[in-house]
């Protein structure tokens, strides 16, 4: 990574409406390099939309999102995202990992070498030539992580990366996410899995009905949440209305 960074990411009074429904409202936040930020909230709280806004897949209908670091180029090139249901290209696992590098103009030999290296790190090297769509759900998600990681992103967005996985596949994915964060990539992820938030997060952002109502370091959020909504979420209460 070059000296200039795209971080911090600045959100000012960001709102998003679609079809007359206000999905997000008045989100103001700043994401710095470093801590793993986990966006927590119930289904429909707006977590996925918030990630898509940050990543630039959606444009906010109110407010402003800016990458305030000194990086002069297209900030999109320094970010990657892994989706809840990753789309596997109809080609081999290795070709999937190499794809983003090809888009970025990396030569063939180098992309295959980097791709193999990355597959090894996520434990899929033995399946390099296997068509990606024939991999299991957990393998596909690890492949999606490799595909994002190989781009050496400064920021990695993860949208409920283990929502459809069994416990052992979830553990494998979490180990990879921890490794990515450990190498200095800023991870911003959503989950509704409290255990996962405890295991991976440094700080928690709690979304409730489209609003960011609480943000705290993990230890504080889980022991002394400020808002009754966060407290109810932590206790596993069902929504009362």
């Amino acid at each position: 990574m070059s000296a200039e960074s795209i971080l911090p990411l600045e959100l000012a009074e960001v709102g998003f409406s679609a079809g007359g429904n206000r999905i997000l409202d008045g989100i103001t936040a700043r994401f710095e390099k470093g801590p793993v930020s986990v966006i927590l909230g119930a289904n429909g709280a707006g977590k996925s939309v918030l990630l898509r806004l940050c990543h630039g897949l959606l444009a906010p209908t109110q407010g402003r999102i800016a990458w305030d670091g000194g990086f002069g180029g297209d900030p999109r090139r320094r970010q990657a995202m892994v989706f809840q249901r990753p789309v596997m290209l109809r080609r081999s696992a290795l070709a999937n990992v190499a794809y983003g590098l090809a888009i970025a103009g990396v030569g063939r030999g180098e992309r295959l070498a980097s791709g193999r290296q990355m597959l090894e790190r996520v434990g899929l090297l033995a399946l390099a030539e296997r068509p990606a769509r024939l991999l299991s759900g957990g393998e596909q998600q690890r492949l999606a992580l490799a595909r994002a990681w190989v781009m050496k992103p400064e920021v990695l967005f993860l949208d409920e990366p283990t929502a459809n996985l069994d416990p052992s596949a979830t553990r494998a994915v979490e180990a990879i996410v921890a490794a990515i964060a450990g190498e200095g990539t800023k991870v911003i992820m959503t989950t509704h899995d409290l255990g996962q938030a405890r295991r991976l997060a440094d700080e928690i952002l709690f979304l409730h009905r489209g609003r960011l109502i609480e943000r705290a370091p993990k230890a504080i959020f889980f022991t002394q949440p400020h808002t009754p909504e966060a407290g109810a979420f932590l206790r596993g209460d069902l929504p009362w209305d």
């Binding site: 898509r52 990543h55 897949l57 999109r76 090139r77 990657a80 995202m81 989706f83 990753p86 789309v87 794809y99 983003g100 888009i103 970025a104 595909r147 781009m151």
Partner: peptide, 10 residues
């Protein structure tokens, strides 16, 4: 199906 993924990959 591919739109977000390909856009994300640049």
């Amino acid at each position: 199906e591919y739109r977000e993924q390909l856009t994300s990959l640049g």
